[in-house]
Amino acid sequence: MKFSIGMLCAIAVVFTAVPAAAEYADVVLNRRAEKEGMRPVVFPHWFHRIRFQCRVCHAELGFKMRVGSNDVTMNDIADGKFCGACHNGDIAWSPDRCDLCHSGKPGLPTGIVGGHETSGPGRW
């Protein structure tokens, strides 16, 4: 029965994984990072919203409010765009601290984590 085979796979995977108790609104960014040999990036909303209003990133810096829709490269960051608008050694630590951003578990797909409840691509 197809159903039980699916279930068995799921069991195997669940057993090897750790609890996904990630903080609400953490974002995993992994469009390119892992393909280029780096760990996925974890962006913590909670940490940044204590310091900045949403508008700074989502209006001033132009991050689109849809996970995966911003094509960020390290070149942009070094040029002071996206994360690099702040992580420039002036407002926040500079991009040479690779391991602080590239801290995700290998294999994580791009997406918002932490028990979000709306699904589907963030469309309007």
Partner: peptide, 27 residues
């Protein structure tokens, strides 16, 4: 709830930087 980064299931505990991150509950 609000586990520290090394235990939250998405950060890689094998990465040094992970342990430098702020645990949410502290904040």
């Amino acid at each position: 709830r609000n586990p520290p980064p090394p235990e939250d299931g998405i950060h890689d505990p094998a990465n040094d930087g992970t342990h430098a991150l702020l645990p949410p509950l502290t904040a």
